[in-house]
Design a protein around this nucleic acid. Structure first.
Lengths: 162, 162
DNA sequence: GCGCCGGGCGATATAATGTAACGCCGCACG
DNA sequence: CGTGCGGCGTTACATTATATCGCCCGGCGC
């Protein structure tokens, strides 16, 4: 369900490069490698799984190596963290959201399948609006919002009698 | 902001007891102790902080001690986990929500103040509905939902220039 | 009574996730 | 040059969570 296939991956990396360039941020080789791994993963991937894969290209890699790269990618909105899974997932692409009027810090929600583990990112403005309004009603000034829904994805719900 | 004060704490424990009884679950002494500590905390509290406090009454306590109790309390809906903080917070009370038509697995959202750390639980049906609808639109069958908003609470936003 | 069984828990060990701190290196800038 | 700063290697450590084994105790059937 997730995971950016083949050529799409290269395109996504190119877009990421451009986005960073436009903002004066440097997508270094290490960061690009980590981003590639995250994007290539069909599911949300943990930092240490990422680390294992990274070591194929970069034998000396240690936890800080991958966490620093992830921090950068998170700041740039190129990946998101799925809190419920303590795992990371590539963002569909900030510019993919540009068309709906959002910047690189766009609102997003996750749908996490408890059966197959697939995690889909959706971008529903009504959810974002409802959350923002509920917060304001409580006198709260929101900065960042996490919405994660666990359940059964269409494929799993359809293909299985439980 | 959070934290069930004095007499309210005892009342909440009594209600928890009754809720468990009604469902055939046993609120043992250990579980009651842990619940009391969670409810008494003014903020969301980590498992290990809980463990430290628990050891005052129960010197031999170890991580599994507190995690097992927390698992039970989570299942019973007596506490919630705040994923962004890896911490736990007492539920306002399932029956406090009974009046708005929800069971012990009621929808809820958290407002987490980045300045003072206070975490407030709110229960907004419009948010829940928007999330449920967005999920259904994607062919997704939701079971459990996490909504956590980080930002500035009314007190911190009001009292501070920054 | 006696034995069995299951839940709750003590206790030890270990896994998984995340950070702090130090220092090197390369590069831009004066 | 020298100076500063960002990126990264490296070591050590902190924090969060789980696996496993085994005891005890209470209920239940015989």
């Amino acid at each position: 369900m997730s995971g950016t296939a083949g050529a799409g991956l290269e395109a996504a990396l190119a877009r990421a490069e451009a986005a960073c360039l436009a903002r004066g941020a440097q997508l270094t080789e290490l960061r690009r490698q980590v981003l590639r791994l995250v994007l290539a993963s069909p599911q949300a991937i943990g930092a240490y799984a990422l680390l294992d894969q990274l070591r194929a290209e970069r034998p000396g890699a240690a936890p800080p190596t991958v966490y620093r790269a992830l921090d950068f990618l998170l700041e740039q909105g190129l990946v998101h963290k799925v809190e419920r899974l303590n795992a990371f997932i590539g963002c569909v692409g900030p510019e993919a959201h540009a068309h709906c009027g959002h910047g690189h810090d766009h609102p997003h929600q996750f749908l996490i399948c408890s059966k197959c583990g697939a995690t889909a990112e959706v971008c529903d403005d009504r959810v974002a609006a409802a959350v923002a309004e509920a917060a304001r009603a409580a006198g709260f000034a929101p900065s960042r919002t996490t919405v994660e829904v666990e359940g059964l994805c269409a494929a799993c719900a359809g293909s299985a009698r439980q």
